[in-house]
Design a protein around this nucleic acid. Structure first.
Lengths: 217, 217
DNA sequence: ACTACTAATTAACGTTCGTTAGTACCGTAT
DNA sequence: ATACGGTACTAACGAACGTTAATTAGTAGT
């Protein structure tokens, strides 16, 4: 059995997660039934249990994978970057890009933490706090070194983290810009929020050279 | 019947909404049963139908009231203010203050639009868009008059709108600052995001006079 | 005392849910 | 041919849901 069975629609673990992701994002965990997920795959609800252990496991798998991907992206964005302004810019761009490219996963992560069983919840929340903590520490470091000017670094961190949600909900509606352009704009917003005046080479001013062009889609 | 009946716990329309608000915010609309709401009031589920028409009506009433209150607060915050920087500052402060003072309502408004019946949904979304549109127009006006410096006014508007959510989730956890102080900080953040350099009197710099003091709670 | 009204109750309804059990089909390997 | 692993199906379960109906108790007004 070298080649997997070729059905018209292959139903496997990943396919179930794919179908559930959109439904969870659109109608919520409790607003989505196993029957709903099965219908997307052209299958009856009990058949899903050949691929997943439970509905709860679907939710946990979706969120766990999404958090790992976001954390990995942050790792790569910050690799080898020592300048704190550039760290904040790249971290924000990474965050926003993840939001724009995987809006369903992000929506689920934002809204369905409460739907996780206690055991799964503490695991996901730990990864979430780890991510937020890294961004907060960048801002705190920038404030200590005098590069950033804000009285409330923790408040600024939360402001930056949440800004990305605006990008996500807006990006879906209007397709005027590319995801990388929007991410670049939010990178600027983040540096402005923390009161950074010298962004080490790249200009934060609207009159400076643009990093990428807006593009009609 | 001049005086209303004095029971140990008065169950009426407002009381049902109060009980449902917190439950909807914590566990979602579909994650909250009529029995759950009734238990908070020390009553059985069918008794609720003496005060509300349906579960859906509870949700609609909560969101409609919350939107009206936010819009009224925005009206009052902007009354008689002509300077566009001050308009943005006051609008943001009004938004954040509303988020901090009525976190449950705001959470419901943010998360449960999808749980509204189609008829109710378009009514609520219209008010939501009205609110967002007013903030967006302030930023666009500031950009046209040259007071704000940002390439993407619409993006900045969404960034400012979403920032308040960060304040809400963070404010619950840490009680280090007063709500008015946090709102003031976010007013500054908003002006920074749009690239406003002259905020007409009040200093946006960390070195300038603070508008209010942080206060341990 | 009688009436009217309000708000609470229990019982029950039809539906939907997540999940399990038992079974049949089908492609592959022996 | 035959046995097997994987995947699908139908049927059914117990539980929970929103809601309605019928009834009871208590209060106010005449």
């Amino acid at each position: 059995m070298l080649l997997p069975m070729e059905r018209s629609t292959a139903t496997n673990h990943a396919a179930v997660l794919d179908a559930a992701r959109t439904l969870f994002a659109d109608h919520g965990y409790r607003g989505t039934s196993m029957k709903d997920i099965a219908e997307v795959l052209g299958v009856r609800a009990p058949s899903l249990y050949n691929h997943v252990a439970s509905k709860q496991d679907i939710l946990h798998a979706i969120m766990d994978k999404a958090m790992d991907r976001a954390i990995t992206a942050l790792d790569e964005a910050l690799a080898g970057i020592s300048d704190v302004s550039e760290q904040l810019r790249r971290a924000t761009e990474s965050l926003v890009l993840d939001f724009l490219r995987y809006p369903a996963e992000v929506t689920v992560c934002n809204n369905e933490v409460r739907s996780l069983d206690p055991g799964n919840r503490i695991a996901i929340v730990a990864k979430r706090d780890q991510y937020a903590g890294r961004l907060r520490k960048i801002i705190e470091q920038g404030c200590r070194s005098g590069r950033f000017q804000t009285r409330t670094p923790q408040l600024a961190a939360f402001a930056v983290l949440e800004m990305g949600n605006g990008a996500k909900s807006w990006f879906k509606a209007s397709g005027r810009y590319t995801d990388t352009y929007v991410a670049g704009e939010y990178g600027e917003f983040a540096l402005r929020v923390v009161g950074c005046t010298d962004s080490s080479g790249r200009s934060p001013s609207a009159k400076g050279p643009q990093r990428s062009k807006p593009q009609v889609s």
